[in-house]
Write a protein that binds this DNA or RNA. Structure first.
Length: 283
DNA sequence: ACAGGATCCTGGGGGC
DNA sequence: TGCCCCCAGGATCCTG
């Protein structure tokens, strides 16, 4: 489900709601996620103060005091929200952290909870006992660089040395972290490149066009608070709006907004792939 | 090295 | 109403 813009939106929404909070209690659901929750994590979480919330690719990193971390991946249907404890707990909720204010003004506001919900359970929650372990985790999964600030030489080399098609390269988190099926299609359309084009056949001008297209699409999607097709909600529990701006994704058969030819859908890199046969030539 | 398929899950939609 | 099939924003493992 959520790709970089959705995860970024969630993190931005949740930050102020997690500010000056401490974890007072932990509730864990019965069903296991992609990685099972180890009950030994619970005592290490209780009492911890929330220091920061950040994003790395599609991963959400909750940094706590005593240098411990809780890392979330939302898979396809994951939702991470902070709500009043009075909100009904929806089905498929797998983790609830009860949060307590600390410092002066322990105001009267109802106590909040950080909730992780995931219908399909492709998501995960992982605890790290220190920063080194967290770094090891990202290194072992060979998580690539962030798209923002992507080095153009690195990007050119990634394309130049692969025979894979552009669609597969964009989806590969080891090359670039954060892009998924929606934004790969939208970026390729923006760059006017056919998803089947082989990396090494892409010239340096085209490579830099694609790099800029990725940034354009991601920035615009973040401005629109992500795309909600079905399950995605932001940290406020609200839907995004970028789905209104898709130019190819999910629009097969509809006229291309640039040239009017019908958008096509094919299967590529195991995923449904949308493109305009007029604007994105294979050559 | 890479493509393609299957797998982990639940739920929605379409066809009959 | 029910059943069956296909589809879905991700990641990972296996085969050829």
């Amino acid at each position: 489900m959520p790709e970089l813009p959705e995860v970024e939106t969630i993190v931005r929404d949740l930050r102020p709601r997690l500010h000056a909070r401490r974890i007072a209690a932990v509730w864990v659901g019965e069903k296991s996620l992609r990685r099972p929750y180890d009950p030994q994590w619970t005592p290490k979480l209780i009492g911890r103060r929330i220091k920061s919330l950040s994003r790395r690719g599609k991963w959400i990193v909750l940094c706590l005091d005593k240098n411990v971390y809780l890392v979330f991946h939302l898979g396809m249907t994951g939702q991470l929200t902070v709500v009043s404890r009075k909100e009904p707990v929806l089905p498929h909720t797998h983790l609830i952290l009860r949060l307590k204010p600390f410092g002066r003004d322990p105001a009267e506001e109802p106590s909040r909870q950080l909730r992780f919900r995931d219908i399909r359970r492709f998501g995960s929650i992982t605890f790290f006992a220190d920063e080194t372990k967290l770094m090891e985790f990202f290194n072992q999964s060979h998580l690539g660089p962030e798209p923002f600030g992507l080095d153009s030489i690195y990007w050119q080399n990634c394309l130049a040395r692969t025979s894979r098609c552009l669609k597969a390269v964009l989806l590969d988190q080891r090359v670039l972290a954060g892009i998924g099926n929606i934004y790969s299609d939208e970026a390729l359309f923006e760059a006017r490149l056919h998803p089947k084009r082989m990396g090494r056949n892409v010239g340096s001008k085209e490579a830099s066009r694609l790099r800029r297209a990725i940034l354009t699409v991601l920035n615009r999607a973040i401005e629109k608070r992500g795309s909600s097709i079905r399950d995605y909600v932001s940290g406020n529990g609200n839907r995004g709006e970028y789905q209104e701006e898709f130019r190819v994704y999910g629009r097969f058969g509809e006229p291309c907004p640039r040239c009017g030819r019908p958008i096509r859908r094919i299967r590529l890199a195991g995923r449904s792939t949308h493109f305009c046969p007029g604007c994105q030539r294979q050559t």
